[in-house]
Amino acid sequence: MNPTRNLAAVALLALLATSAAEDKKAGNPVFPGWYADPEGIIFGNEYWVYPTFSAPYDQQLHFDAFSSTDLVKWKKHESIVDTKDIKWAKRAMWAPSIIEKDKKFYLFFSANDIQNNEQLGGIGVAVANKPGGPYKDHIGKPLVDKFHHGAQPIDGFVFRDDDGSHYLVYGGWRHCNVARLADDFKSLVPFEDGETFKSITPEGYVEGPFVFKRDGKYYFMWSEGGWTGPDYRVAYAVSDSLLGPHKRIGLVLQQDADVATGAGHHSVIHNKKDDNWYIVYHRRPLGETDGNHRVTCIDKMEFDEKGMIKPVKITFDGVTADPLK
């Protein structure tokens, strides 16, 4: 027996096994079930996705979450928050956005699909001590419950800027606003000019805003088209300021007649360790006509030499394993 040869063989097998694991594709959708509006984020050494449970509004009464260490294998965390924990939410809980602050996790969400200022609902906040919950109502009422600048109070996204300040970017009905969050996330703080809600609506905007920062630039993304139709898609702008102006550059994500339709309402995950970028989004499988039949998918997102986002090709294969450890 040659110990050196045996050790070399073991090392080779380990290398091949690691390589095979890294080459494995996640597949799209990344987990089973009807899920939409996915918010993807990294907490520690885990990827997390918080989607809408895609069902008729009167059945859309809770959120599930999913976690993974490599983007391939996903663990389901059932009913991390539901209407029994949010007394004012009666129906249509959707479009979650989450952020960690001071070792607590704050989940922002839409509820009740209000159509005017007299109805109860809007954007609420729930809080938990760990990413998988359980989450409890943070305020006991909506954070934003009225229409400002024409924006329906839905589809909230929480953005943390480099100076540690937090902003709520939100809005439906083709209008988008930004507001500053108080340090405790229980209220909004007016801007220096006294205005609390600033309109930052770009051309083509419908809903589903998302913001990230890269090389000092603000990348503002949103969904266009109708969420029940095949033309749902994602466009973007790049600006020197969160407040804009945000001039539409072009599309990042759209349907592919050979793969799926209605690709939209997305988020972005950045693995800083390897500088890998991923777009997390929902789409409608071919042949599905029910507006609520949406699935969550992940594909690679890349930039060109000028920092523009390359159009994303939606796939059945999904992404390669990308462990965070």
Score class of each variant (00 low, 15 high):
Glu195Cys: 01
Leu143Glu: 02
Glu288Thr: 06
Asp322Val: 02
Asp113Val: 00
Asp240Asn: 15
Tyr170Asn: 13
Gln119Thr: 00
Ile249Tyr: 10
Glu46Leu: 09
Phe159Val: 13
Ala65Trp: 08
Val319Arg: 11
Pro323Val: 05
Val10Asp: 15
Ala126Arg: 04
Phe212Leu: 15
Pro51Phe: 03
Gln254Cys: 09
Val72Ser: 06
Asp317Ile: 06
Phe197Glu: 06
Asp163Ala: 15
Asp274Phe: 04
Asp137Thr: 10
Ala260Gly: 14
Gly172Tyr: 01
His293Tyr: 12
Pro32Cys: 03
Lys146Gly: 09
Gly121Asn: 02
Gly40Phe: 09
Leu13Ala: 14
Ser97Cys: 07
Leu251Thr: 07
Leu15Trp: 08
Thr315Gly: 01
Trp94Asn: 03
Pro190Arg: 01
Lys306Phe: 03
Lys325Phe: 13
Lys84Asp: 11
Thr289Cys: 07
Asp183Met: 03
Lys136His: 09
Gly204Cys: 08
Phe191Thr: 03
Trp227Thr: 14
Asn112Lys: 01
Thr296Leu: 15
Glu195Tyr: 02
Gly150Arg: 13
Gly44Asn: 11
Asp161Leu: 05
Asp102His: 13
Leu243Asp: 07
Asp299Tyr: 05
Asp137Ala: 04
Arg174Met: 11
Ile314Met: 07
His148Cys: 03
His246Gly: 13
Ala128Ser: 11
Val158Ser: 13
Val158Asp: 10
Pro134Trp: 05
Val125Leu: 01
Val125Lys: 00
Tyr170Ile: 06
Leu251Lys: 08
Pro285Thr: 07
Ser67Asn: 13
Asn271Val: 13
Lys24Val: 12
Pro245Glu: 08
Asp240Pro: 10
Gly250Thr: 04
Ser267His: 11
Arg214Tyr: 09
Thr196Met: 06
Lys90Ala: 00
Ile86Pro: 00
Thr83Asp: 05
Gly172Val: 00
Ala179Glu: 07
Met308Gly: 04
Ser68Phe: 10
Asp274Lys: 14
